[in-house]
Design a protein around this nucleic acid. Structure first.
Length: 338
DNA sequence: AGCCAGGCTTGGT
DNA sequence: ACCAAGCATGGC
């Protein structure tokens, strides 16, 4: 698409000045990307704002993202030969203009787009997405963040910003480089006693295999309440191969939705979130309390409309990128209006 | 204190 | 087919 990159091996003037040895960085060039809206709109729950950047984990990569006028600077540890994993996650190759043009031309959509233009739908790992949204039911977003943070601290693997260096996850943007010290292998080895989590330390999202060998009580200690048995059962079905999340990519949206909804604790809304945020089914349209409120207040003010009729409207009115439209309505509703 | 939160399941009409 | 209660937990 229109994006062009400059890798850390080039001498681009846009390169971050605080680059350190053992790090890679890249400038993904494009306009029309609102990083803050995208990372803080209830799609993913583990991005932490840090000064003017966002810090998080994508797969096994520690990542810092910084919005610039002409794109996004990404930094990560170690050499990176191919940044496709990052472009895929951020969906930087999606033509946003083309998506927005498919939206219905009505006042609510115009207002929603005007309020948060540049908001994107991410493309996340299916397991992390599924697990996160199993934990989301009847929870506020701040609490989902808290639960997933606990889950990752207890059962994830520590992700060190520079694998051979000291963990300095959050220096100010132009801090003087920290000398990288050799560290004996195994310092973060297999036995990780429970301890206070260091400030800013980041963990990978635990695999289904890891969670499959926990107990419901251990999961409940992450404050997930009645969702614990649902998450545990899902992890076990995936770990033992009864459910293959990769296989769902080959199915139709409806078939994939059915497979997801066969899991305890996964109804239509959570399934739609996974279809949209992980598999990229553009027509998936999750309806939560905020989107239902948006539909009723913006499209049917002072009218009583049945849930059935509302679902039919949602399924037919928003076009081939209904999921994108939904995310704009959601973020619009949550930010601009109370 | 009481209500609500990016819901789902179950049991009652 | 539609309606309500129950479910854990925490923020406001």
């Amino acid at each position: 698409m229109t994006a062009s990159d400059s890798s850390s091996s080039s001498s681009s003037p846009a390169e971050p000045k605080h680059r350190r040895e053992g790090w890679s960085s890249i400038l993904l060039r494009f306009r029309d990307y609102d990083l803050a809206a995208t990372l803080d709109s209830g799609q993913a729950f583990r991005w932490q704002p840090c000064n003017d950047s966002w810090i998080g984990v994508i797969g096994r990569h520690w990542v810092r993202l910084t919005q610039r006028r002409d794109g996004i600077i990404a930094e990560t540890a170690g050499p990176v030969a191919d940044w496709q994993w990052l472009r895929g996650y951020l969906q930087t190759e999606t033509d946003l203009d083309a998506v927005l043009k498919t939206f219905p031309d009505d006042a609510p959509m115009r207002d929603a787009v005007a309020a948060c233009r540049g908001l994107r739908v991410l493309r996340q790992d299916p397991w992390e997405c599924l697990a996160s949204f199993i934990l989301s039911s009847t929870k506020q977003i701040v609490q989902i963040r808290q639960i997933t943070a606990l889950l990752c601290e207890r059962f994830g693997e520590p992700i060190i910003p520079a694998q051979v260096g000291r963990a300095v996850p959050c220096p100010p943007p132009d801090e003087v480089s920290v000398p990288i010290q050799q560290q004996s292998p195994g310092a973060h080895g297999v036995t990780r006693p429970t301890r206070l989590v260091e400030e800013g330390e980041i963990y990978s999202f635990p695999t289904a295999e890891r969670l499959a060998i926990t107990t419901e009580a251990e999961l409940r200690s992450c404050k997930m309440g009645f969702r614990a048995p649902h998450l545990l059962a899902a992890a076990r079905r995936i770990a033992d191969g009864k459910l293959d999340l990769e296989r769902l990519r080959q199915l139709t949206m409806a078939e994939s939705r059915g497979e997801l909804m066969a899991l305890r604790g996964v109804g239509g809304k959570i399934a739609d979130c996974v279809l949209l945020f992980a598999y990229g089914f553009a027509g998936a349209f999750p309806v939560d309390v905020w989107v239902e409120r948006a539909l009723r207040e913006l499209y049917f003010p002072r009218r009583r409309v049945s849930d059935k009729r509302l679902r039919h409207f949602a399924a037919t009115h928003f076009g081939p990128h209904a999921g994108y439209a939904q995310q704009y309505l959601f973020h619009y509703m949550r930010t601009k209006m109370k």
